[in-house]
Nucleic acid binder design. Structure first.
Lengths: 203, 203
DNA sequence: CCAAAACGTTATCTTAAGATAAGAAATTAG
DNA sequence: CTAATTTCTTATCTTAAGATAACGTTTTGG
């Protein structure tokens, strides 16, 4: 996929939130930067400010925390999804997490500096505020669901939900990442899977 | 607290996000409605669309789910905080939760209809988009933290965090609501509290 | 192609959480 | 003021999760 094809895809994805006319699009694209991450390279690192948002063109990334030396997955972003350490991006505080490429990954980036420039550019300001609102609202809904899942469901139920809504996660991610995405250990997920496979085998 | 004092407080709270000039404020306030909830009355009910956002002037409300007949608290909103079943408000889908007054509560409401009217009113559109963006971003950060707490911390650690950040929650909320806010049962929270009180008493 | 690393499962042991019930204490309502 | 309700704790029992280690299997990288 070449750069212009990537841009077309990006533009289409943005239309979920907001539609740019040609003049706006030209200015908007001037504020984008392109980058690639080799597998295992980092997009964000704990302790450093994450000063950009990225759109995944190809590949995938994983958002995770390290606690007591243990790596705990928060979520994944695949093609045509956004990724950032949002709190760090929004507040300018150091990130509390890592974001790492799971495969070779191509990104379109919007730095906070460029975003602020667009928010202050009369040509784009209104549309960018709107984009920001709709995108933040969209992700807010995702988080609302995710918190509801943690307080109302057992790990087993969360796994079954993941099975039924069947995101790419299940195909493309190692089990142990899925495990702590669900809030449990890999060993525990393995046991849940066994329980589910042989529900009759009781004694 | 009379109605105009409430409005002043509300205006001040909004300034965390956006500042209105007098002309804007006059139009904005025309889109507000006022209501009161007696203790135990509902602001939102599962299965019904929640078509408004509210600002708590006095009192407090609780956001909760009912699963298998059991009531599970998601969060609380106190004075000068917003509350809504956001996903329902934003998507127009029926709410999956309840919101109930914990005490007699006074609210300032913005209906979705009024919000849309403001978003379409040239005088306010830009500012309301911006308000919406900043507010959604703010709550997004709260949720990001909350999910991180679920995947990286034990229930005991979450309780200790709540103790140290010491929100009003601890003083004003019954223990069993706090328990499932933390993702555990009331019985379990009671045990955690006992463990913490007598850490030496091992045998 | 081979050695090393990563992955998933399984087993054991320990610890803690859920379910349930009961009872004391506090709060609320008539 | 008293009865009813709510709240919190405690106890018991069951179930499941965490920690750790071991062992095949697969994948990866040199």
């Amino acid at each position: 996929m070449d750069s212009s094809t990537a841009l077309i895809t990006f533009r289409k994805s943005l239309e979920k939130f907001v539609t740019f006319n040609e003049a706006e699009w030209i200015v908007f694209t001037q504020h984008l930067t392109y980058s690639t991450l080799k597998k295992k390279q980092y997009f964000a690192v704990e302790g450093k400010v994450c000063d950009k948002i990225a759109f995944v063109v190809t590949g995938s990334v994983r958002y995770f925390h390290i606690k007591d030396g243990v790596d705990i997955t928060g979520y994944f972003s695949f093609e045509n999804e956004f990724v950032s350490s949002y709190k760090s991006y929004l507040t300018g505080m150091p990130a509390l997490n890592y974001i790492q490429a799971l495969e070779d990954t191509r990104l379109i980036n919007i730095s906070k500096k460029d975003m602020d420039a667009m928010l202050n550019n009369p040509l784009l300001a209104y549309k960018m505020e709107r984009f920001g609102r709709l995108a933040a609202e969209y992700y807010l809904c995702c988080y609302e669901d995710r918190v509801a899942a943690f307080i109302t469901q057992t790990p087993e139920e969360r796994y079954l939900d993941l099975l039924s809504t069947g995101r790419e996660i299940l195909q493309r991610m190692p089990q142990h990442y899925i495990a702590n995405f669900l809030g449990i250990t890999p060993v525990s997920l393995s046991r849940i899977r066994r329980r589910l496979m042989a529900p009759s085998k009781s004694a």
